[in-house]
Design a protein around this nucleic acid. Sequence first.
DNA 1: AAAAAAGTGTTTATAATATAAACAGTATAT
DNA 2: ATATACTGTTTATATTATAAACACTTTTTT
Lengths: 268, 268
Amino acid sequence: MSHDDLTPEEVAKILPPGAALGWGLAKPPQRGPKREMSIDLIVKKAVEIADKDGLPSVSMNRIASALGFTAMSLYRYIPSKDDLLILMQDAISDVPIPAERPPQEWRESMREYVMGTVGIFREHPWYGDIPILGIPITPNNLRIVDWALQSLRDMPLNDYEKMSIVLLLSGYARTYGMLQRDIDRAVQAGSSEEEFSGLNYSAALRNLIKPEQYPNLHPIVMSGAYTGENEDENTVGNDLDFGLERILDGIEQFLIRKTTSDATEHHK
Amino acid sequence: MSHDDLTPEEVAKILPPGAALGWGLAKPPQRGPKREMSIDLIVKKAVEIADKDGLPSVSMNRIASALGFTAMSLYRYIPSKDDLLILMQDAISDVPIPAERPPQEWRESMREYVMGTVGIFREHPWYGDIPILGIPITPNNLRIVDWALQSLRDMPLNDYEKMSIVLLLSGYARTYGMLQRDIDRAVQAGSSEEEFSGLNYSAALRNLIKPEQYPNLHPIVMSGAYTGENEDENTVGNDLDFGLERILDGIEQFLIRKTTSDATEHHK
DNA sequence: AAAAAAGTGTTTATAATATAAACAGTATAT
DNA sequence: ATATACTGTTTATATTATAAACACTTTTTT
């Protein structure tokens, strides 16, 4: 409601500590010994560890040791581990955003956005492990929201419709990012992609899926399609593209319906 | 490939231990003292605890104590905690499946499926916290896949197209289930739904989102739509319905295109 | 009937976790 | 000169999954 200009201190008080730190709103200390570390350094090291050994390996001890300090020293910079996770998540959301496209290329623009978001999951498989505690409010996360809104800017939609579409696209990207992550993780854990897709379980499923209890699934298990026996016909990449094109078609239908009904309303 | 009839023991050897237990393939012990517990009892109690206090509260100690035994006794029934999680996940997937609808009501049928799946997340908010280690292979999870395939059974689609659509719908249900869960969780943790939607951060965001850096998001933050200031116009329920209808429209387009191109191919 | 085998639930032990409290030392403001 | 604010460290705590060894109990084999 209010259009007040708040001071940075006032803004910092409203936001959760992690977000306030992300916006650089922590005022540097005025007294005491010189700091030997920095928030950026800690977050960078934490991301490095998570990339290499996964999120469970990111302990306060591990980060501090890697930097040559004790675990407790980190608490002079970041109030809690949850806040650190928020900062890590925002740090890796600092992705390059491609040049804007003309409005008629909105489908390609949305594809770029979804693929870009899925890319974060590929590069940092722990991205999806950090719990979502609310709508994005950190700087790089909001830049990604801004990116998603780009192709919608000049469309005949109200703000809520735009946000619904952004949610649809970002949710889709998240789903496939996490699916891709789960596969990468299973592969890295020694299990093969075939194991994940269920190829190893084909024989077992053929014995367990009875047509009486699973009338619709039964033929698909028997044909081998469920466990992806013809790998070239069924890959995750294909599934991702397939679903995305259906969603884009659905958005297109909405736009068509919206513009024609606007035209008829004009006639009234 | 093979059409062999395998013995239950052979099937159990192929599957991961958790899944084999879910299918009831563990042969009862032949010697030794009578068992005082059962797998079902343990899983039921674990689900009860998770429902009440969340997944982190489900420790081996907590389950065993609630049943009047020691933590280690559980390992006589279930090989590891990961296996227990698989059994818990399958147990709550035992949802009632509504009566089949005539083919022309496929949209309503898909809506029922998505809403039903989202419902599992509402009733058991920890559902989405259990990591996905591969395609569904446990009995109740496969029953849900069978449900999803119901409305597609008689459609002119090949098996891979059907599975892609199932993946699209189940992924969408999962996304919104988890969103709903995150909100419920934030509310239960004392923070309000307004806090989650960002309403409390409106004033802060208005000061932070500069038009130069966030050209597309800026107007939406200023109008109050980003933080959902007109609650009646923007609810999660609305977003769920909006996205689902777009996806159903996208599927409809695919069906139309497919049937007309089949017709033209016939003409050749 | 005797002995071996298999399985029961329990006790004890281990390494790792986030972070609270108290500490001695250091830079700045009054 | 002294009070204040801040630094990084040390010490301590409760909790976790599960391995190993234990004394009993039931069934199978000899």
